[in-house]
Nucleic acid binder design. Structure first.
Lengths: 139, 139
DNA sequence: ATGTAATTTGCAACAAAGTTGCAATTTTTG
DNA sequence: CAAAAATTGCAACTTTGTTGCAAATTACAT
């Protein structure tokens, strides 16, 4: 009789606490990426600011969520796909930022195309951020 | 009898001041991207912290430099190519972060390959960040 | 089920990063 | 060279993130 969120926590050897369940469910109910500030806003004063920081850090370390850097220098977080093992994020999908609603989406199905590096530079990982208009805002 | 930095400032209708020349020359002498902290370190206490912020902001608005988001959530700045008009950065080149020396380089010559968007999503701009080993560190 | 060990939380204090208003200085312009 | 415009430094403040520690909660082994 465990919730989905509870199972995810157990699978990653994290204690099951109210704050972690609450925050994890927030991610499950939104299909776009969330900033620390979003979470703080939506959980009200249920938990301390510090708890949110530590929760996000724990989730990130365990590979439950991954962070997304943005141009305006805010960190966003989004749920990882199954394949993300602890620490090793298979993070090679595209992040899409809608310039209208400002939401960030993970386009999990589209891989990053191969890129020809200049001589001497060896690529190990790549991250692609696309800006434009999302499905919802296109009407 | 104007320096290169001085000419760039004049071309963008910015007053020629010592701090702006100093900071602009810093960018010209480094071929990798600089963080605010780097500039603060290298200019010592010649200028106030606030002046550096405002200088970077002015340069960015005029299209002299562009900002680069990084994974660890620090903002980096690098010189723009000629084509960058005020505000409209033609910023579609690749940013390369060396995992050894931690420097960030602009690979200006390589364009970002075309990407197939999912239905409903309209791409307007793309930014590509590549991690790996740079030319110098490969030895 | 219960007591103990381990983990997590909230609080407070702190550190770092960035912003804003304003008076004084510097630069530009005619 | 003088007046107007722009830039700078200072101080105060906000926002964002971190750390240590005592209290509370959760996990675990009987």
């Amino acid at each position: 009789m465990s919730s989905l969120a509870e199972n995810i926590l157990k699978k990653h050897h994290l204690s099951v606490t109210e704050s972690r369940i609450r925050i994890l469910e927030l991610f499950q109910h939104h299909h776009n990426a969330l900033a620390h500030a979003d979470i703080e806003r939506q959980t009200g004063d249920l938990f301390d600011r510090v708890t949110i920081y530590r929760t996000l850090q724990a989730f990130s370390e365990k590979g439950i969520i991954h962070s997304i850097p943005t141009a305006d220098n805010a960190v966003l977080y989004a749920l990882c796909k199954e394949e993300c093992a602890s620490g090793k994020h298979s993070d090679n999908h595209i992040h899409f930022i809608c310039e209208k609603c400002q939401n960030t989406y993970c386009l999990d199905h589209i891989a990053i195309p191969a890129i020809q590096m200049p001589a001497g530079f060896k690529m190990k990982q790549a991250g692609l951020i696309v800006e434009g208009i999302c499905k919802n805002c296109a009407k």
